[in-house]
């Protein structure tokens, strides 16, 4: 049981892959430590913002479908990312729908987050943040290293997650504002992901043919299935890689590295995903088809600046709408 005064969340069912994540780790890549962190840090920051947490607070990231959680005390939550059906069940058995992209005040009871739609990943922020200890400057789970988050692993049934201190007023029924945030356009059936090809000429191109997401994909890397690309024929000298690096293994089926990727790699590089499209890539479902479009580095940078500006506008809008929480984000470091 939790110590007196420390609020916890009980995990009744974890879902296929639910982990504690924040903005990820920096400063340790030279000793092999991956970034980890939410696959869409903007969505995680938005969820935090909606419940009154600082943007770097730890949230839950869930995959394909969400967890079932029991809250012993009133709390405030927000769900962002792909669309999801979430239901809240009060102690008396009364059920109500929990909306997406808005703050929701909950009395004690059970939150059931169902299957994700038009995407495969979602983020749940809880007022106060998930208060697991920081490890190497972050609360993110490093699944391969086995540290950070909750004991370095995915959530399991029966886990108890500690919450940071925040006082939420007594609520008798779930309460949510009528407005919500459209975070991004829904993912189209066959999304187009923009990338910056490797500068060296003569390399194979991803454009023009369709690629299907291999179900063996995970937070470390997304594997693509399609017409095999011919490699450059020479093995590369191992060098640093990054989330977004597109690698070409000898079988000609590209791998796109994601947040949990190793820090160095030896496969030839085809280029990198435009930063602005990394969150969309994280929403592509196993078996789904996608297209690639080459852009240059300057265009990729420009798109990223536009996205930041879009965020600043959204942030100003939220300033007017959000109630004065007990804990306000002191600096909403615009994601």
């Amino acid at each position: 049981m939790s110590a007196r005064g420390v609020a916890t969340v009980e995990v009744l069912a974890a879902g296929p892959l639910t982990t504690v994540q924040d903005r990820g780790r920096t400063g340790w890549r030279h000793v092999g430590v991956a970034c980890a962190g939410a696959l869409d840090v903007d969505a995680a920051a938005l969820a935090n913002r909606l419940v009154g947490n600082p943007p770097g607070s730890a949230v839950l990231e869930f995959t394909l479908s969400g967890p079932r959680l029991r809250f012993a005390r009133p709390t405030r939550v927000a769900v962002c990312g792909a669309l999801v059906d979430a239901v809240f069940i009060e102690a008396g058995g009364r059920r109500s729908a929990v909306g997406h992209g808005r703050p929701v005040e909950l009395p004690p009871g059970e939150l059931r987050i169902g299957r994700l739609r038009l995407g495969v990943r979602g983020w749940l922020a809880i007022a106060g943040g998930i208060d697991v200890p920081e490890c190497l400057g972050s609360r993110s789970t490093d699944l391969r290293g086995g540290f950070g988050g909750l004991d370095g692993r995915r959530l399991e049934t029966g886990d108890r997650l500690p919450l940071g201190a925040v006082q939420v007023d007594r609520v008798r029924r779930p309460r949510a504002p009528a407005w919500w945030v459209e975070f991004d356009d829904p993912l189209p059936a066959e999304p187009c992901i923009r990338y910056v090809p490797d500068a060296r000429p003569g390399g194979p191109s991803l454009d023009g043919s369709g690629w299907q997401l291999d179900p063996r994909s995970n937070r470390q890397g997304l594997r693509l299935k399609g017409d095999a690309l011919a490699g450059p024929g020479v093995e590369a000298v191992s060098a640093a890689v990054a989330p977004g690096t597109i690698q070409l293994p000898p079988d000609g089926q590209p791998i796109v590295l994601m947040a949990d990727a190793q820090v160095t790699g030896g496969y030839p590089r085809l280029g990198h995903v435009a930063a602005v499209d990394m969150p969309r890539l994280a929403q592509v479902a196993p078996g789904q088809w996608l297209q690639w479009r080459a852009i240059d580095a300057a265009e990729s940078q420009r798109l990223w600046m536009l996205r930041r500006a879009q965020w600043r506008r959204l942030s100003h809008l939220l300033d007017e709408r959000l109630p004065p929480y007990a804990v306000r984000a002191t600096e909403f470091d615009l994601p």
């Binding site: 890549r29 191992s238 060098a239 640093a240 990054a242 160095t264 930041r308 615009l334």
Partner: peptide
Amino acid sequence: ILDLVPAYASIGVFFDPR
């Protein structure tokens, strides 16, 4: 500058674009 990642013949240089 967030990370400097040396390898055999190269260095990855990671920065905070904000």
